[in-house]
Every structure is written in structure tokens, then in C-alpha cells.
Amino acid sequence: MTTHAWPQSARLDAPRVLDRIFDITGVRLVLEGPCPGGEIGAAYVSWPDGRRSVLTSARTQCGPLADRARQAGVPTARHELTARVDGVRVIVQQRLPGVPPVTLDTALVRQMLQVNDRLAGVLAGEPAPQPAPLHLTADGPGFCLHEPLRQYSDRSARLLERVRATGAASGSQMIGDDLVHMDFHAGNVLVDDGRLTGVVDWDGAVRGDRHLDLVTLRFYLGGMAPALTGPVDERLALIPARRRRAYWAHMSLRQVDWSIRHHDAATVEKWLTVAEEGMADR
């Protein structure tokens, strides 16, 4: 399954990390095996008392924002242990029930829309940081890179021109008081018997406009399950076209750049097609 992953330097080397956690904290965690899905790697581990958790890594101190989402009614995992291992932040977090969905359906999409609703205004009243950049006119920090699109093919170069033009015309920042997951797609939720039981991977979460998460979901569905896009399109039709264009341009740049650098040619072509169809509609 393709995911819109935020970049990491390498996949998690769970055995080495667990040894280092023991050296640092004196806590001996036992490796149970890899978690399904994802591109950076995560692993199931158990504590000496038998409690079961998940080991993963993060670029940011995302625990407080995941806590805010949980307070708003979104099922998220509590962070139980954090450590720096060879310059990388690693996290042992609560293991939520459920697994990533094997198939997608309208019921899951509607549950994800409900999650998005709960994140509206979650950060209102707090000191506002700088607006979150969309990287439409300049490279992002290790993702949303422009040069791969410029060099890959004439098709990707034309997409980049449209992305940059959208940034110049519609702006390249996101503002708002919502909590934005920033990687909101079916690969980052857990389900149990059809019920959404968890939203994971809050590493990129920021303050901004929750509708960007809906654009992320819509982009993903366009490539993986186009028959399910209707409910998301209905929501996105309610926001100004200028914002939709900017958010779609961001996702187009982000996913095509990532695919060029990490996936095969067929995957690149698939996401180019999704990107182009969306740019034409918006």
C-alpha cells in the first residue's frame, strides 16, 4: 500500500533500538514483530509486565498534539516512553485495538470524515505559530522537493509548473485553528470489525485548516478507491476554490516527489494521473 509518508532517514532497526533503550533507561522491551503497513517501520513490543505497545520513530514532539486530538474524541495512542537513540527520537506508545484496513468502504470514509469534524477549532485560543508552509514555490525540508519533478519527465515538469503557478496565485501557506494530521489516509487508521479504533502517525501534525486532511484523503482515494470519493468531494465543495487549489497542489507535489524518489515508475504515473485530474477540476 502506498502511503503519503513523511520522510525519515531509514527504516527503524527495532532490535538495535530496543538494546539502546535498555542502555538508556534500564527498561528491557521484547520485540514481538513488525507492524503491518507504513514506510518507515514500526514494531510491536511488550513490557516486562506483559503490557503490549508499539515502537516507532518521530521527527517531532507530537505527543501533545495527539493528546489534544484524543481530548477531542479522536482515538489516539498515549506515549509511554520516549528516548533519543543515535540522534533519532523513538517512541513507545500505547497499542490501540484494530489493524490497518484491508479493504476500504464508504462506512470507513464517513468515519474518517467524523474524525476530521472533531479536529475543528481544537487549537483556537492558543498562541498562533507561523502559518504552516505548503512548499508550492520552494522546497520543503526533505519532502515536497521541486527538482525531482523538474527532472523526471516532461509530464512531471509540467505538473511542477502548475504547482508553482498555484502557489504564486493562491498563496503557499495554511492558516487556521484546527488540528491538522497532515498524513490523513486509510493507511494511518486502525479498524476492528468495521469500526475505526485509532488514528496513528501524528508526526507531521500542525495547526491549520483541517480541510487539508480531507484533500490528503481525497488524493489517496483517487489513486486507491476512486468509487469512494463522493462524500469527500461533497465536503471539499464547501470551501473556497482558492484553498482547494492550493491544498491539491501541495498534495500533488508531495506525493509525486515522494514516489519519484522512493517508488517505481508505475506508481509515479498513477499519482501523476491523480494529480493532473485534480488540478484540472480545481
Rank of each mutant, 00 (worst) to 15 (best):
L272I: 10
V274M: 02
M1A: 13
T137R: 14
A77K: 04
D281A: 15
L217H: 05
G26K: 02
V85E: 08
V54E: 07
H146A: 08
P100S: 02
V88F: 01
W47P: 02
P141R: 11
G140V: 01
W248K: 01
R162D: 12
A10I: 00
R245D: 13
S53A: 15
R110E: 15
I260Q: 05
A77Q: 06
Q71H: 11
R110V: 13
D213L: 01
P131E: 11
Q93T: 06
Q173E: 15
G121K: 05
V199D: 12
M112Y: 06
V54D: 03
R20Y: 04
S57T: 11
I91L: 14
A249L: 07
V274P: 00
L190I: 03
E147H: 09
Q151Y: 00
L238K: 14
D67T: 11
D233S: 12
V199E: 13
A168K: 13
A124G: 10
L29R: 04
L212W: 03
R164C: 14
A280L: 14
L123S: 07
V215T: 13
L272E: 11
S259E: 09
V115D: 05
A165W: 05
A246L: 07
A58P: 04
Q173H: 13
W258G: 12
L236R: 00
R235A: 13
V99R: 14
T103F: 10
A107G: 11
L179H: 04
D139L: 03
L29A: 11
T82D: 11
R89Q: 14
G37M: 05
M251A: 13
N188I: 07
E39D: 08
Y247H: 12
V74N: 05
A58K: 04
S170N: 15
Q8A: 14
A77P: 05
R118G: 02
P64Y: 03
A83C: 09
G26R: 06
I24E: 15
H181M: 08
R89S: 12
W248Y: 12
D86H: 09
G98C: 04
R68Y: 09
D177P: 03
C62Q: 15
L55H: 06
R235L: 11
A69C: 11
R11K: 13
L123F: 06
P231N: 04
P97F: 04
V27P: 00
R242V: 15
R51K: 12
H79M: 10
A120N: 09
P133Y: 07
L96D: 08
C62L: 02
D86Q: 11
W248L: 14
L179I: 06
V45E: 09
K270D: 12
D192Y: 04
Q94K: 09
A165M: 08
I239Q: 08
H262C: 07
D209E: 07
D19W: 00
P101A: 06
G194H: 02
G171R: 03
H262E: 14
I40E: 12
R218S: 15
L18E: 04
D177E: 14
P231Y: 02
I260G: 06
K270P: 01
G98Y: 06
W271S: 09
Q130K: 10
T106E: 15
E147S: 07
L113N: 04
P129T: 02
R78Y: 02
S53T: 13
L221Y: 11
N188W: 05
P101W: 09
D154C: 09
L272Y: 02
A83D: 13
I21Q: 05
R16M: 12
T103R: 12
L196C: 07
D19H: 05
R78D: 14
V191F: 01
L65W: 08
C35K: 08
L134T: 07
